[in-house]
């Protein structure tokens, strides 16, 4: 049926390297998500409460992140900054690109979450004698978190998938490592087939973990 001999042995031989690379993928995605959540939260709060140039900058960030391709953003951090003599390592390019992108998307999610919590909640907690900080951390943020939990897990999956673009800026995470081995052995199909399976497993594990975590977090 196939006019092609499949050779899986070289792939199996380099499987440990691929799995190591998979951990690098996961690491960069998790790091980008953590930074993205923090920056995204700041962006959302700035866009809701501030005026002037800071608000304008935050809006620019969000709209640029959402309306240009992720690959373009990576290239920008990779080559575009080179024009200013700023040369990042492949790892930093991917981390910066992913963080920029995730922060933009998450900011919109957070804004939706904040809008969904009625103002009266904040006022009620203030009139119970809580400080603004207490009201935010104990009343508003937990409710927002519940609303944005699902979008955050989705974004985590996207971060893992997007990190595969690292292959095009010379970062040797799972895709880059696969590309490296594939071009050494010319077993392109076999290598990428195995990589696709690894990505699928990673994504499924993230979704299962998030569901388990949700049942523990949102018991009440």
């Amino acid at each position: 049926m196939f006019d092609y001999n499949f050779h899986w042995r070289p792939v199996m031989k380099s499987l440990p390297d691929l799995l190591d690379a998979a951990f690098l993928t996961l690491q960069v995605a998790v790091l980008a998500m953590v930074l993205g959540i923090i920056i995204g939260l700041c962006l959302a709060l700035i866009r809701m409460h501030m005026k002037g140039p800071i608000r304008w900058l935050a809006s620019c960030w969000v709209e640029l992140a959402r309306n240009t391709p992720a690959l373009f953003q990576l290239f920008f951090f990779g080559f575009g900054l080179g024009a200013f003599g700023l040369h990042l390592s492949p790892y930093m390019i991917v981390l910066a690109g992913l963080t920029f992108n995730c922060a933009g998307y998450l900011a919109e999610n957070f804004r939706g979450g904040f809008n969904a919590v009625p103002d009266t909640q904040l006022r009620a907690s203030r009139s119970l004698g809580m400080t603004a900080w207490q009201a935010y951390t104990r009343i508003v943020i937990p409710q927002v978190f519940r609303i944005v939990y699902h979008p955050i897990t989705n974004q985590m999956v996207w971060a893992v998938l997007m990190s595969s673009l690292g292959m095009l800026v010379g970062f040797r995470e799972l895709s880059g490592e696969t590309q490296f081995f594939a071009s050494r052995t010319f077993r392109i199909f076999e290598y990428f087939a195995v990589t696709a399976v690894i990505y699928y497993v990673i994504v499924k594990l993230i979704l299962i973990a998030s569901r388990l975590l949700a049942t523990r977090l949102f018991r009440y």
Partner: peptide
């Protein structure tokens, strides 16, 4: 599957799979 595998991997995979069949 098509939502859980990076698009770039799908593209490379299909591009190299097509000649096989």
């Amino acid at each position: 599957i098509f939502r859980s595998v990076p698009l770039i991997i799908q593209l490379v995979l299909f591009y190299n799979f097509a000649p096989i069949v």
